[in-house]
């Protein structure tokens, strides 16, 4: 399959790779929200960690991804887009914008959905840790 130049660029030079510590450590940290979505048996797992300042702005974001090139690019792009946004602004990011930016073909749309899910899950984790209400809408399922 042919990949867009942007997908190839994110694949070769992924932005903001990493984490803010081992999974057991970040669990305890109130300034860090973690979203892990997907499953190994489906061929993709995305882990997004956000570090949120007292003002509710995402200061830093890190990702790790097991998945195809489009999944890696979607999560790498997501970290770029959410940095500097407030958590509520970040929740506005829709998967369709990721599809457009990376020119993902139809069979790869699920990668963008997963990236959107990881943003929401990380923010919900952060909000729960800080006693803030989370939106009623649960992660919307998507067909695989």
């Amino acid at each position: 399959m042919a990949y867009s130049e942007k997908v190839i660029d994110h694949y070769q030079n992924p932005r903001n790779v990493g984490s803010f510590g081992a999974s057991s450590d970040v669990k305890e940290r109130k300034d860090v929200g973690v979203g892990i979505v997907g499953a190994p048996e489906c061929g993709d797992v995305m882990q997004l960690q956000i570090k949120v300042g007292d003002d509710g702005v995402i200061e830093d974001a890190k990702f790790k991804c097991f998945g195809c090139g489009s999944a890696i690019a979607s999560s790498s792009l997501a970290t770029e887009w959410i940095k500097g946004k407030s958590v509520d602004e970040a929740l506005e990011i829709k998967n369709t914008r990721i599809v457009e930016e990376l020119s993902l073909p139809p069979v790869k749309i699920h990668c963008s959905v997963l990236a959107e899910d990881s943003i929401r899950t990380a923010i919900e984790d952060y909000k729960k840790k800080n006693g803030q209400p989370v939106a009623a809408e649960a992660g919307h399922g998507h067909a695989h």
Binding site: I36, V45, K64, C65, I72
Partner: peptide
Amino acid sequence: RALSPLYDL
């Protein structure tokens, strides 16, 4: 593997 959350786990 440097990108893989599964490898970290």
